[in-house]
C-alpha cells in the first residue's frame, strides 16, 4: 500500500519536472516532437532506475561502512557517466536500429540533472531498496508523462500566433507554469 502511494506521489503530486525543476534541459530542448519526447523519456527511465539501484548498493555497502559519505556526489556522477557509456556501447553493437533513434539522447543523459537528482533524493530520503526502485521508476515515468504532454502542447503552439519576444523558451516556460498549477491540484486527491 505504502509503495503504491509512493509511486503515485512520485508520478503526479511530486513530479520531478514541475515541482523539483529537475531535467529542465531536455524538457525544453527535446520536447518539440512527440517521438523524440517519448524516446528521451524511455532513456531517462532506463538510466535512472539502473543507476539508482547501483548507487544504492555503492552507498550502503561501500561509502557508509568506510565513512566516506562526503564522496557521494563524485561517486554517483561517475556511476551515471560510466553506466551511460556502457549502455551506449551495448546498444550500438547489439541493436543498431534502436541506436539510430536513441543514440544522441542516451549520450546526453550524463548531464541530465533528473538522473543525478533522483539518485540523490533516494539517498537523502533514506529509502530502502524496494522504495528506491519504486521511487526512481515513478519519477522517471512522471518525467516521461510531462515531457510527452508538453510536446503535444508545443506542436500546437508552433502554429499559433505568439508575440516575437515570447517565441521559443519564454512561452514554453509560461506553459510549464500553467502545467505546474494543474499538477499542484493533484495534491488534493
Amino acid at each position: 500500500m505504502n509503495l503504491i502511494s509512493l509511486f503515485i506521489t512520485s508520478v503526479l503530486t511530486e513530479n520531478i519536472v514541475l515541482t523539483k525543476f529537475l531535467g529542465l534541459c531536455p524538457f525544453f530542448g527535446n520536447s518539440k516532437k512527440e517521438e523524440t519526447a517519448l524516446a528521451m523519456g524511455l532513456c531517462v527511465t532506463l538510466v535512472t532506475t539502473l543507476s539508482s539501484v547501483i548507487t544504492y548498493f555503492i552507498y550502503h555497502l561501500i561509502l557508509v561502512p568506510t565513512k566516506t559519505e562526503y564522496l557521494s556526489t563524485l561517486m554517483f556522477i561517475l556511476v551515471i557517466a560510466s553506466l551511460v557509456q556502457l549502455l551506449v556501447l551495448i546498444i550500438k553493437n547489439k541493436y543498431k536500429k534502436l541506436y539510430k533513434s536513441l543514440g544522441i539522447y542516451l549520450s546526453l543523459i550524463t548531464t541530465n540533472c533528473a538522473v543525478l537528482g533522483v539518485v540523490l533524493l533516494n539517498i537523502n530520503n533514506n529509502y530502502n531498496l524496494l522504495e528506491t526502485i519504486v521511487y526512481s521508476l515513478g519519477s522517471s515515468i512522471g518525467f516521461m508523462l510531462v515531457i510527452y504532454v508538453f510536446s503535444t502542447i508545443r506542436e500546437r503552439l508552433e502554429q499559433s500566433d505568439i508575440p516575437k519576444c515570447f517565441q521559443g523558451i519564454p512561452i514554453a516556460l509560461i506553459t510549464a507554469s500553467i502545467m505546474a498549477l494543474i499538477f499542484e491540484r493533484f495534491k488534493g486527491i
Partner: peptide
Amino acid sequence: QAGAFLTLG
C-alpha cells in the same frame, strides 16, 4: 513552482 516558471518566462 508555477511562479518560478512564470517569472523566468
